[in-house]
Design a protein around this nucleic acid. Structure first.
Length: 302
DNA sequence: CTCATGCCCTGCTGGC
DNA sequence: TGCCAGCAGGGCATGA
C-alpha cells in the first residue's frame, strides 16, 4: 500500500522527529521484521543501540536512517544505516514510552532523551528493517533499486530507452523497481489513466513521446498525492503521528470498478493483472489490439 | 538479461 | 452464527 508519496511522508516525519536523537535501546518483538538482517534479531538490537540518527533518506519505497556513533556527531558518507521497507502494512509510529504497545508492534526504538519511541508496526509482516554497514549513502541491499522519478538521479531518456525494449505490458514495466522505483499498483493505474494508456499496452510498442507522456503523468500524480499527504484506504497507511492522507478521494481509476470515469463518465473496468488488479477507463484507455505474452495474454475482464 | 511464477502474511469480506 | 475461499499486494528466489 505505501508507495512513493506515502513513504516520503513517513520520511519527512522521521526527519522532523527522529533525526538528531540517540538510540538508547532496541527491542525486536518479531524476528520476521528483521529477516533480511542475516545476523539475527539479537545482533540487530546490539548494533543499533547507542547510535545517533543523522538523516532520513529515501529511494522509491525504501527509506533509511544513516547513523553514527554518539561520540562522533555529524555523520559521514561512510556511516552505517538502518534500512526500512514498509511492505504492505508497515508503519513507523511515534509513541510515548509509557503508552501500552498496540497490536502488531514488531520493533521498538527507545531514545536517550526519554522522548517518544519509534515503533515499527506491521500487520502483515511484509515489511522489514535491516542494519546496513556503510549504507549511509546507498544501503547495499537496495543497490539494484533504480532511482525514482522525483530524485535528481532519475534519467528519463535512459529509462524510456530501457522501457521501449521491454515486451511486457507497460504496467508491468512501471512496477519493476529495477527500471524505475516508487511506483506501485495505485499510482501505476492513476498515471496510466492520466496518460490515457491502457495497462496491457506492450511497452516496446509505445512511441517515445507516448512514453514521455506516461512519465510526465507519473511525476504529476506522485506530486499531487504527496501534496495531499498520500493515499489512505483505512488505518493501515498513516504518517509517524498516525494521521491519514486524503489523496484517496482524488483517485480516478484505482479501486473504482463500476464507477464513472471522472473524464468521460464511462464505468471504470477492473481487469485481472498477474494475480492483482488493473483499473482502466474503457473509453479513455483503449485496449491494444495486440496483447503481450504470458500472464497478460491470459488476463481477462471480470 | 528478460520474463513468469510462487511464496511470504494477516485481516476483512462475501457466499453458503 | 460459523466456516472457508478470495482478496489485498511488494519484493525476492527460482527456473526457463
Amino acid at each position: 500500500m505505501p508507495e512513493l508519496p506515502e513513504v516520503e511522508i513517513v520520511r519527512r516525519g522521521l526527519e522532523r522527529y527522529v533525526v538528531g536523537r540517540t538510540i538508547a535501546s532496541v527491542r525486536v518483538l518479531h524476528p520476521r521484521a528483521v529477516r533480511r538482517h542475516l545476523a539475527g534479531p539479537a545482533d540487530f538490537e546490539a548494533v543499533t543501540g547507542g547510535l545517533t540518527v543523522t538523516a532520513a533518506r529515501r529511494r522509491g519505497k525504501y527509506l533509511w536512517l544513516p547513523v553514527t556513533p554518539a561520540s562522533r556527531p555529524g555523520g559521514t558518507d561512510q556511516d552505517d544505516a538502518i534500512l526500512a521497507h514498509l511492505g504492505m502494512s508497515g508503519q513507523l509510529l511515534l509513541a510515548d514510552p509509557g503508552r501500552p504497545l498496540t497490536a502488531h508492534v514488531r520493533i521498538v526504538f527507545a531514545f536517550t532523551d526519554g522522548g517518544p519511541e519509534l515503533r515499527f508496526t506491521d500487520q502483515r509482516t511484509f515489511g522489514h528493517l535491516a542494519y546496513q554497514p556503510g549504507g549511509a549513502v546507498l544501503p547495499p541491499l537496495i543497490a539494484h533499486i533504480a532511482p525514482d522519478p522525483l530524485e535528481p538521479a532519475f534519467d528519463e531518456p535512459m529509462v524510456i530507452s530501457r522501457l521501449l525494449t521491454r515486451r511486457v505490458a507497460v504496467k508491468t514495466a512501471l512496477l519493476d523497481q529495477s527500471l524505475v522505483s516508487g511506483i506501485g499498483n495505485i499510482y501505476a493505474d492513476e498515471a496510466l489513466w492520466r496518460a490515457r494508456v491502457h495497462w496491457a499496452q506492450p511497452a516496446a510498442r509505445l512511441s517515445r513521446s507516448r512514453a514521455a507522456g506516461i512519465f510526465g503523468a507519473v511525476r504529476d500524480v506522485l506530486r499531487d498525492a504527496l501534496a495531499a499527504g498520500g493515499t489512505s484506504f483505512d488505518s493501515l497507511y498513516v504518517n509517524v503521528n498516525g494521521e491519514s492522507g486524503y489523496f484517496g478521494r482524488s483517485l480516478a481509476a484505482y479501486g473504482r470498478a463500476g464507477q464513472p470515469c471522472p473524464r468521460c463518465g464511462a464505468p471504470v473496468v477492473r481487469d485481472r493483472f498477474s494475480n492483482r488488479s488493473a483499473y482502466t477507463c474503457p473509453r479513455c484507455q483503449r485496449r491494444p489490439r495486440i496483447r503481450t505474452t504470458g500472464a497478460d495474454l491470459r488476463s481477462h475482464s471480470t
